[in-house]
């Protein structure tokens, strides 16, 4: 499959000499769903700001759909790469939800009939029809989050990046976000999610990239990465609770590479049956 994002030996600093990204190499293919994990300050947000040109490499290169971001403006890249920020309050400003959704479309110069159609589509998708004439600022936290997501999805970018979508969200809202991510992925979108919610990643992703101190310390299958004690300790993360249990029970014969509840239940049941069989 074609490459959506290619990062080559990327270095970046905000303040001369204090590197925040130190030689990042990664490739995300079209239609992939990838989680980027790491502690606060590992460089995750700085990295994704390179994907839509908000930041430009100091060394190395970032290519989006084969085009180097160096010569492209944010507005040009934004049509291809949608970036949903962590806090909806950093962007909501319009008088109505509808207007909020139309904002990006108008910036991109779409004709009004298309704007209307895309807004309708996004309102339906994010279950916001009943709020269309309300002020986004009058909505609850979870609803505001949905408006912010819709305001990016409405112009149908090929690559969609979410920065910490689960922070401050309750269980139901998290489930909803997981559903949305899967749906976007099914539609063939490339989905990149920055998060430190390890349970969320274990449940919903196949590929995970782990960052620590401006470098990538692991990139691969969720099971391999999240059950690797070295990766976990190097990146200051915590393993998924199931994995932690499996590690604690390694000596009685439980595989340490479990990440799902069903797997652990199966392993423990197997163990009990074997005991019975002694």
């Amino acid at each position: 499959m074609a490459v959506a994002i290619e990062v080559n030996d990327l270095y970046f600093y905000y303040e001369r000499g204090k590197y925040v990204l130190k030689g990042i190499n990664l490739t995300v293919r079209d239609g992939e769903m990838v989680a980027i994990m790491g502690n606060n300050g590992a460089g995750k947000t700085t990295l994704i700001k390179h994907f839509n040109g908000l930041l430009k490499p100091i060394r190395g290169s970032v290519k989006v759909k084969g085009r180097d971001t160096k010569g492209l403006s944010v507005a040009e890249l934004a049509r291809t790469v949608g970036l949903v920020f962590q806090n909806p309050d950093h962007q909501l400003f319009a008088e109505t939800v509808e207007e909020e959704l139309a904002f990006a479309l108008r910036n991109f110069g779409y004709p009004e009939d298309i704007v209307k159609r895309r807004v309708e589509w996004a309102l339906t998708l994010m279950d916001l029809r009943k709020y269309r004439h309300r002020s986004p600022l009058s909505l609850s936290g979870g609803e505001r989050k949905r408006v912010a997501i819709a305001s990016v999805l409405c112009y149908d970018p090929e690559i969609i990046i979410f920065d910490e979508p689960t922070i401050g969200q309750d269980y139901y809202q998290k489930q909803k976000i997981a559903q949305l991510l899967r749906m976007l992925s099914r539609q063939g979108k490339t989905v990149i999610v920055v998060t430190h919610d390890v349970e969320f990643v274990a449940e919903n992703f196949e590929r995970v990239i782990v960052m620590a101190d401006g470098k990538i310390v692991a990139d691969g299958n969720v099971r391999e990465v999240l059950t690797d004690p070295e990766v976990i300790s190097k990146s200051n993360l915590l393993p998924p609770q199931v994995t932690h249990c499996a590690w604690l029970l390694k000596d009685v014969g439980i595989s340490p590479k479990l990440i799902k509840v069903s797997e652990l239940v199966k392993e423990i049941t197997r163990l009990f049956h074997e005991h019975k069989g002694i």
Binding site: L54, V74, A75, A78, L83, H90
Partner: peptide, 16 residues
């Protein structure tokens, strides 16, 4: 810092 993030967020939605 807030202002910088707001600028980033709106530029990401095509504001020039």
């Amino acid at each position: 810092r807030d202002f910088q993030t707001i600028i980033d967020a709106q530029r990401s939605r095509g504001l020039e």
